[in-house]
């Protein structure tokens, strides 16, 4: 099976334990990996987005906070700003909102994944990493419904396993892997 040019973007969601998982993920990506990676990491509403500085150390992908109306570019990774939901419009631009929390979270992984699924349809890869709740499960299901690929961190290898477990219970996912393996798979998918 060939994946040539199928995928246009990656969305990833992480909660408790996410920092280490994201570091490992970024460390494992090829030099030339250039699909946009759009990330929701649950974070305290008033936090400075320190993750940006940390993740920028780990890969050539330029990591920054998502801005409203921005179009995701190859070669960049985007983090949802603290205290904003990040949505993807049908034309792929970002929208930020301060609506109610979803699954007790703002940003919420479901909000990103559900809107991204509709925008990118079968050209999207969704990844659920470590976390302590069930945010992202509905979103990952929607990604599958639109023909995208669903990847979940192996709960055995997750710092906190509830979020990956919830995702696996909700959807028939394509891959359950440790984070190093997820990086290797992304490399393969991006190369086509």
């Amino acid at each position: 099976m060939t994946y040539r040019k199928q995928y246009k973007a990656v969305v990833a969601g992480a909660s408790a334990g996410g920092l280490n998982a994201l570091k490992t993920l970024f460390r494992g990506l090829d030099e030339q990996f250039d699909l946009p990676v759009i990330i929701v990491q649950h974070i305290s509403p008033n936090a400075e987005n320190y993750l940006i500085h940390i993740l920028n150390e780990f890969h050539k992908l330029k990591v920054r906070e998502a801005d409203e109306k921005e179009v995701p570019q190859n070669g960049f990774a985007y983090l949802a700003p603290p205290n904003y939901h990040l949505l993807i419009e049908p034309d792929h631009t970002f929208t930020l909102t301060i609506d109610e929390r979803v699954n007790y979270a703002r940003p919420s992984i479901d909000v990103l994944f559900e809107t991204a699924a509709e925008a990118y349809k079968d050209q999207l890869i969704g990844i659920i990493l470590t976390g302590a709740n069930n945010d992202g499960s509905k979103g990952l299901k929607k990604i599958k419904e639109f023909g995208g690929m669903a990847i979940v961190q192996d709960p055995e290898t997750a710092e906190v396993d509830s979020m990956p477990k919830a995702a696996i219970q909700t959807t028939v996912v394509d891959y359950i892997l440790n984070v190093e393996e997820i990086a290797a798979l992304l490399n393969k998918l991006a190369r086509g």
């Binding site: 949505l87 993807i88 609506d99 809107t115 925008a119």
Partner: peptide, 9 residues
Amino acid sequence: YSQAHVKRR
């Protein structure tokens, strides 16, 4: 308005 937002609401 933002389409994705209006749709969610």
